[in-house]
Amino acid sequence: MRGEVEPSAPPRPALSSGSPVLLRSDLLAIADMVPAGSRVLDLGCGDGALLEYLVHSKQVMGRGVERSEEGMLACVRRGLSVRQGNLEEGLADYPDASFDSVILSQTLPFLNDPAMILSEMLRVGSRAIVSFPNWGFWRCRLEMLVAGRIPQVVDLAERWHEAPRWQAFTVADFCDFCHHLDFGILEEIYLSRSRRLQSLRYKNLRATTAVFALQRL
């Protein structure tokens, strides 16, 4: 689904080792949470931009799962190891603890059963890294209040009635969800469009996008 999502900001070059790779700021935030040389599974890896960056700049052992043929072909062209399939298929075959990190980028609002997918991610990997748009952002709240419409977030191109359908939620909702399911929050990065928030104060008001690293408690 990542391929269909409008980038939240123009990509900027990642200034890590190797050749400079243009990576979207939310993907770069994910990349910062991935330890070098670790084993990574990227669910819904799109055209493979993040995975390629991780393989080349962080020397990870990377695997991807992608639904679209277009995305698959782009990934193979980048020299990545990617399987076609949906998230359930992508996860079910892997033995427990096959990966250090399992990534789910900008896909959470589209899931029918996020608890199941996150549990599976934390079965297959020791940590899950997820990013999602935050409907708690002050402009979203204002739009709801003033215009009385479900706000459109910067990371999602689809409107409420368009497929694939999404479910709006906020950083606060997600924290409740993690608490309820005993997922511990290891790291959190918040973005306001492409800019990283330096302080966590009023994060649910100020962030357009959130990136979490989770583990099972």
């Binding site: 190891s81 076609q84 399939g85």
Partner: peptide
Amino acid sequence: KELVSALTAAGADVTYLDV
């Protein structure tokens, strides 16, 4: 797909596409 599942379970590096 059955083959890919088996190979994945075995820990192999598999690229798969249903063209």
